[in-house]
């Protein structure tokens, strides 16, 4: 265990601000890894100081769409999945493959190593496939995030109707007229047993079914529509509470409409 020295406290101050040079950061983290109550206490205090400093800046208003973007992206990524960009976190573990020898003094040892090599290769291949799958998912998320960031994107705020059972129903829709894709983020849409929520597009006063809404256990749902139809005639979105499986006809909700929002822009 390395002994605590006062100069480590200097490093703790820079660490809390994130301004330590790499060599100092590594030196301090090695010391911290061995355990040092004095430095841990200093880091706790200095990190509170860092928060207070950041809080001294003028308050700024962040766009409301950011939350949706984050939650949509998080919904498709499992926690702990490897990052695709450098973030200073520890590197991913990589299987080290040894080059097999050409001859073996003992055949059994050779077969054993061959089997180990095969297992390692299979594991490596499995990890490669996982990375490829993650990349495909990430690209898919980027494609949908582009809907919300599109320059001419049209927005709709969905609010509960008087027929809604709960005021916690809410939603937001983004439509990219150029690609005709749409993303809707809905909250509070936990369907009662034996019922389903169904999404509708309203054009010229007439509803058109867009499909069922599948929410998670918290009532949060993200609906992605590859082609929402002609954006020029799209007036509003609505959500109705239907029998299990949805309304029997695609142009007339049978249950109460609980959410509705006009498409602006």
């Amino acid at each position: 265990m390395s002994l605590h020295r006062d100069d480590y406290i200097d490093l703790c101050a820079g660490y809390a601000l994130g301004s330590l040079d790499e060599g100092d950061r590594v030196r301090l983290e090695r010391h911290l890894d061995e355990g040092c109550e004095a430095c841990e206490k200093a880091l706790h205090d200095f990190s509170i100081g860092a928060k207070l400093l950041a809080g001294s800046l003028p308050a700024e208003t962040v766009g409301s769409a950011l939350r949706d973007r984050v939650m949509i992206a998080a919904g498709s990524i499992r926690p702990g999945a490897p990052a695709t960009t450098g973030d200073g976190a520890e590197p991913a573990k990589v299987l080290k493959l040894e080059r097999p020898r050409r001859t073996f003094a003992f055949p059994a040892l050779g077969w054993g190593l061959a089997a180990a090599f095969a297992i390692a290769a299979a594991l490596f291949w499995s990890k490669l496939e996982t990375a490829r799958t993650d990349l495909v998912k990430l690209r898919e998320e980027q494609r949908w995030a582009a809907v919300m960031n599109a320059p001419g994107a049209r927005l709709a705020q969905l609010a509960p109707t008087p027929q809604a059972a709960a005021a916690s129903f809410k939603g937001r829709a983004f439509v990219d007229p150029a690609t005709r894709r749409a993303v809707l983020v809905l909250d509070g849409v936990t369907a009662p047993a034996g019922r389903d929520f169904e999404l509708w597009a309203i054009r010229g006063g007439a509803p058109k079914a867009l499909g069922l809404v599948h929410a998670d256990a918290s009532g949060h749902a993200v609906v992605r529509l590859e082609d929402v139809g002609d954006p020029a005639t799209l007036a509003a979105f609505a959500v109705s509470l239907e029998p299990k499986g949805g309304a029997p006809t695609p142009d007339a909700p049978t249950g109460p409409v609980v959410l509705v929002g006009k498409v602006e822009g």
Binding site: Y15, A16, G18, L32, E40, L43, H44, F46, S47, I48, A50, K51, A54, V62, L66, R69, V70, A73, A74, I77, P79, G80, A81, P82, A83, T85, D87, A89, E90
Partner: peptide, 30 residues
């Protein structure tokens, strides 16, 4: 940038070490 930050938090929350400061301090560092 904040979108990247929150996705990093989602992916890498296990990298937070309470011995090295507060959660707020960690978020600010990220």
């Amino acid at each position: 940038t904040l979108q990247d930050v929150w996705i990093q938090v989602w992916r890498r929350s296990t990298t937070f070490d309470p011995r090295r400061g507060t959660v707020a301090g960690w978020l600010l560092t990220v």
